[in-house]
Design a protein around this nucleic acid. Sequence first.
DNA 1: GCTGCCATGAGGTACGTGCCTCATGACGTA
DNA 2: TACGTCATGAGGCACGTACCTCATGGCAGC
Lengths: 347, 347
Amino acid sequence: MSDTGIKRRATVHDVARTAGVSLATVDRVLNDRPGVRAATAEKVEAAIAEIGFRRDISASLLARARDLALTFIIPDGTNEFMASLTDAVTRRAGQALSDRMNIETLRVRALDADALAQSLDGLDPRECDCAIIVASEEPSVVAAVDNATRRGIMVMTLVSDLPGSLRRRFIGIDNVAAGRTAASLLGRFMPMGGKLAVIAGSLHLRDHADRLKGFQAGLTAEFPQLELIGPVEGHDERPQTEAIVTDLLRRHPDLGGLYNLGAGNAGLVRALEGSGRSGQIRVIAHELTEPTRKGLHSGAIDVVLDQNPDGEIREAIEAARTLALDANGTAITDPIEIGIFLRDNLR
Amino acid sequence: MSDTGIKRRATVHDVARTAGVSLATVDRVLNDRPGVRAATAEKVEAAIAEIGFRRDISASLLARARDLALTFIIPDGTNEFMASLTDAVTRRAGQALSDRMNIETLRVRALDADALAQSLDGLDPRECDCAIIVASEEPSVVAAVDNATRRGIMVMTLVSDLPGSLRRRFIGIDNVAAGRTAASLLGRFMPMGGKLAVIAGSLHLRDHADRLKGFQAGLTAEFPQLELIGPVEGHDERPQTEAIVTDLLRRHPDLGGLYNLGAGNAGLVRALEGSGRSGQIRVIAHELTEPTRKGLHSGAIDVVLDQNPDGEIREAIEAARTLALDANGTAITDPIEIGIFLRDNLR
DNA sequence: GCTGCCATGAGGTACGTGCCTCATGACGTA
DNA sequence: TACGTCATGAGGCACGTACCTCATGGCAGC
């Protein structure tokens, strides 16, 4: 087979010729501008489908003569996971620049719905094409998301979703599945049965509640021989979690497993190592951060379930880029996987 | 703070002005064209660093007036993992098109080094900017890679690396770590000790050998109470693997664990289910494919270690795109993580 | 002072799309 | 008939980079 012809991608000119309309009309259809009869628009759509035209993102961004502006709004505070999310954004921002994307990060007070809503309301559609937020489930946030959407700012949710709002996409893991996974591992780690304690941050947090739900369901279905203690709430704080774990260890000398589905892992590790029983109890925690890494290395923690902040940021950026130019876009984005880390496959 | 000015990215014009040279000279430096004194080039580089200029990929690709051409060369045959790699390429090819990338897939006979070398030799630099190959470690392949590189075709390796060649990047997992991870999980699954069998495809394959190395090291270091049987070679084929597992089960009624670090998993599952002992033995296999998914669901397999073909393809494409425009590029690409899948976190 | 080579400048066109203005023709209504 | 509205066409400039041609000035060797 001799391939003589040089392959050329279809352009707007080809669409115009095929549809038998002018370039201006094609442009109006492509960019949802008014002044096109429905029948004409259909002709154009048909031509697009026929010749397989795909808008050239490079040229499109170039012609817009400005960058795609993304704004990440991330909870502030001492939460290490949020810090690593922010780090990931910063890291990506650099290389995103040469892809005509300008990324800004805003941090708002954690768990302060009104602060989040205000930040959203304060975004200028001329300076922000897409906002990516770690949502908390409050009416004021839903209203702010919907309002932003109406002003022309696309909103996506990260880590924690906001169903019922006009958010365009959710990027995060399935927390029920994460809880089930923890149950499945701990069950296999304790084939002889025994006692198993659960610690949560706060059951008012949607992701924590989901994890607990999955965990309990998994245990009941697969490992009924295990005796469940808790959940106890540690409010995601180091000292409180440390106290709780210390107390659990004291009261249950035969404790075989521990699942911390919230944060406060520095306290968890301290309590375990302080007890002298580190390594004898199978422990699962969440999020690959400094304390959990240390725990994995020392053997205090067996497994860490992780939602891969870097991957989430990558997906968010990619989704925003695609959606921004193709409103009814069918962007292929990878589902965020639940990462499972042992000491042996630490990245 | 009133932010009056509109942020504008630095362009080649800015570089020219800052360096005190003409646009043409900047262009020569940027694109490695001759006709620039070393001293002048340095001035330009300095200006680039000073104003933080980053070449605009969009405009660059546009101006080149042709797509980036990538060619994936993937082993042919019945190997399901290679099939899913190919699927991933096909899926990405579509959306890559609107990013000015034209992706082709070539399939060559598996384990046939000369066929791979010939394919590489046959690539035309005008029609292929970058080849991504699943390398086998043979001198003829190394020669072909180096030759392609000299002709101006960038080569990257996928899944299996080719150290000592001029390949620009390797994209794949750390197989030693994968083996260690398997040992770590199986060890925790069998706290009372017991017998543990290992099946490989062929120890002449580098990745298999690496996995075995990691597995043995992990067991020795952490779980010396486990008795290791094997490795037995199943040559990655279904019937052979089935026979081996059936035989192992028959000869070791007290077998507690099984690690298949190669392919042939359909045979593994059949043998387990045929024996009636499925679910009583802790089993770890590799690659999330149809047979291993079935095994996870039925409970025949406990854990699947996966190298995430889709992610690998994504990284390959991204790396190619970045490297193609920035030869000494410092592309941030994500390391390929070892995915750990249980029934409960199947994607 | 001539020739020839080299480094550099000046300026253009092109890539595919976005977005603007202006013209034109069709149609409906007062 | 006159006017307004609307769909559409025609054409052009802009975005930032690639790549081309041609001109110019310097410098070495003769």
